[in-house]
């Protein structure tokens, strides 16, 4: 099979990018999309030209590294999978394929198709955790958790943090990403003590990073490799409303348990 690829090339964050057309010849239908790109790159490297920079790592759809918008859809034409799980037999011979990076202000381009997704890490650092020290945890069976509850929490927790939701959203919003983490922890008893602080801190961080707001169009759900449901966004909204109600109660200024200056 042969393909014509229109690939976004951009040397550095500050330089202007443009589409460059490449031909991929003799592509086996059993090749993965990334292997096809590997082939194009091997050709470029052999000519001492800079290969197309793109991200990948585990190549089995779990690390969340891959980040290509293929013909206008993050992760390409198949649902419920990431780019690394896409195979060339999915495309008709001779097809023209446009490949772009995730586009969002919060994800500046580093080079070609590689973007900087640290904004998602910073949102997590704002509150995507349960503050427990190592050691001293009670026995795992002391907390009984309803099976369905655990399964729903697992549905939310399966987010791979690839950022396709942001890439697909008209408003480049990270709501599905934040919703997945907030819901995962709000559904479990372990996450309850910090739920008020968590949802506020994570949404504040999301705003700070320059993501847009949710338009409830659900493109995020449609491209999510783990098919995370937008119902978790409703859960997130509810958690946020709840936090507003809880917060307007009596003020309390607890002393930081980690104050080092004591």
């Amino acid at each position: 099979m042969n393909f014509t690829l229109k690939i976004w090339r951009q040397k550095s964050p500050d330089e202007k990018g443009r589409f460059v057309t490449y031909e991929a010849h003799d592509v086996g239908s059993g090749m993965s999309f990334l292997e096809m790109l590997d082939g194009v790159n091997q050709g470029l490297i052999a000519k001492d030209e800079e290969p197309v920079a793109f991200e990948q790592d585990c190549r089995e759809g779990i690390c969340g590294s891959c980040s290509l918008v293929i013909n206008g859809i993050p992760h390409g034409p198949d649902r419920g999978m990431s780019t690394c799980q896409l195979y060339m037999r999915r495309f008709p011979d001779g097809a023209v394929i446009t490949i772009e990076p995730w586009r969002a202000r919060a994800f500046p381009i580093i080079k070609d198709l590689v973007v900087d997704r640290r904004a998602l890490d910073r949102v997590m650092q704002a509150g995507g955790y349960v503050s427990v020290n190592t050691g001293g945890a009670v026995d795992g069976n002391v907390l009984l958790i309803e099976k369905d509850q655990a399964e729903t929490a697992m549905d939310a927790a399966s987010c791979i943090g690839c950022g396709a939701c942001v890439a697909a959203c008209k408003n480049a919003s990270a709501m599905l990403f934040v919703a997945a983490k907030v819901s995962h922890l709000a559904l479990l008893p372990q996450g309850k003590p910090e739920r008020t602080r968590r949802v506020k801190a994570m949404l504040d961080a999301m705003d700070r990073e320059g993501f847009g707001s949710c338009g409830n169009q659900y493109e995020c759900e449609a491209v999510c490799p783990k098919r995370i449901s937008v119902r978790f966004i409703a859960t997130l909204n509810r958690e946020y409303l709840r936090a507003g109600v809880v917060e307007s109660g009596l003020p309390a200024e607890p002393e930081s348990p980690h104050a080092e200056s004591a």
Partner: peptide, 22 residues
């Protein structure tokens, strides 16, 4: 054994039985 307890405390959603146990 401690690892499991620690992970549960961190919110790892391990599979559960109907009775709520791991």
């Amino acid at each position: 054994a401690q690892i499991i307890d620690q992970c549960v405390a961190l919110g790892v959603p391990f599979a559960r039985e109907y009775g709520g146990q791991l």
